[in-house]
């Protein structure tokens, strides 16, 4: 899922300082699961913002909503009937959701209430870690199901590098060396010969290098 975390409240207060009536829009997708932008976080952030503004003597009216998903057009319609009654929207969906709202409601200023960090997993309750950089050219079949682009700090395709020490990465000693993990996993699978296969230079055209990406499925289009 997409993992995010709340922006500092003072940053949010600065963004909305000139408004007195806003919509605070959460998303029931990924950011609900990673406790950054769901219904619960909408409640907490709205309460915190109201307290802060009361403290400043500039009260604010906040309409609290949680859309099913902010990355699908039909769910953005959930606020259409009342959006014009508000001066701005503060969205705590991921960056995609914030932008999609902005595209949909062109006359209403949209502000992001969270930072979108990465595609990752719930490592344990309250801990999330990165797994995928969406490079568009998956190599997990070559590397024992462990992504060298994401898990290796240098995104090496033929690792490990000389900075791998006792299974840890030289970039951050708390980070496991991605290539050590790949080696260990391949060994466990009895596929160590895979380590000898040279993975060719990466084709980054499927990644961000060509600008924003697009997928079209003619069979699904209406």
């Amino acid at each position: 899922m997409v993992i995010g975390e709340g922006k500092p409240i003072k940053d949010i207060l600065f963004m909305i300082e000139n408004y007195s009536k806003i919509i605070l829009a959460g998303c029931r997708g990924c950011v609900t699961v990673c406790s950054a932008g769901g219904e619960k976080e909408v409640g907490i952030l709205a309460s915190a913002l109201r307290l802060a503004r009361q403290n400043e003597g500039k009260e604010i009216e906040i309409k609290e909503v949680s859309l099913e998903r902010q990355c699908d057009p039909e769910y953005l319609e959930e606020i259409r009937s009342f959006v014009d009654e508000y001066e701005a929207i503060l969205s705590i969906a991921c960056g995609a959701g914030v932008q999609f709202l902005a595209e949909t409601y062109k006359k209403t200023p949209i502000y992001p209430g969270i930072n979108t960090n990465f595609i990752g997993v719930t490592q344990e309750q309250g801990v999330w870690t990165e797994r995928c950089q969406s490079c568009g050219n998956c190599k997990l079949h070559l590397t024992g199901g462990i992504c060298p682009i994401t898990r290796c700090a240098k995104s090496l395709l033929n690792g490990p590098c000389g900075g791998s020490s006792d299974g840890k990465c030289e970039v951050n000693p708390e980070t496991d060396c991605g290539w050590q993990m790949i080696y260990d996993r391949l060994k466990e699978l009895g596929k160590l010969d895979q380590m000898e296969v040279i993975i060719p230079i990466n084709d980054w055209t499927t990644s961000r290098d060509g600008g924003p990406r697009k997928i079209v499925r003619e069979d699904l289009k209406l």
Binding site: A48, L51, N55
Partner: peptide, 8 residues
């Protein structure tokens, strides 16, 4: 922490 941030 939140109460500190909002000035309460």
């Amino acid at each position: 922490k939140i109460l500190d941030e909002v000035g309460i």
